[in-house]
Amino acid sequence: MGKVLVATDWLAACAGCHMSLLDIDERIVGLLEHIQLTSTPITDLKHPPKEGVTVGILTGAVNNTTHIEVAKQMRERCKVLIALGDCAVFGGIVTMRNQFSMQDALRRAYIESESTVDGKIPSSPELCRPLRARAVDQVVKVDVYLPGCPPSADTIYYVLSELLAGRVPELKGEHLRYD
């Protein structure tokens, strides 16, 4: 049997979830005997292959039009989609922005932030449009939810191991954490 193909990507994320994935440490060597990472946001290949993968992992919340495209592409190209981390699962800290109007949020970020001089709100038509922040499952169907900020490396390892063993991982006890 060939290796199981796994693709990951991040949306509105802080990269902490991917850090936690790398925190699997040397166990990742063992994992890589069984899986092949086709694409990640921190490798040269960013997009899941057209031929599809078995497992897709998304971290971060959906908060602009590009995120919707990325999430839809991942969903189309994977069999099992994992929402990894509080932002992907619940919307998380990114949704704090929803408490303000988009104009206020953009003005705060691009004009009023303390380090900004002569700021302006980007308006190029090439750029995506910001949206109200939301969880991944409000855009595409999610198969496995893995909350945590970030989920511990042990929990990520557990979930991947369970999937490799052909089981749907059930999060409970030490593996279910929201912080």
Binding site: Q99, R132, L171
Partner: peptide, 18 residues
């Protein structure tokens, strides 16, 4: 309690009312 009942996601949309 959410841990006890294995709540790993929420089905409903959040209003985010400040």
């Amino acid at each position: 309690l959410a841990y006890r009942y294995g709540l790993d996601h929420w089905t409903y949309e959040r209003p985010h009312e400040p």
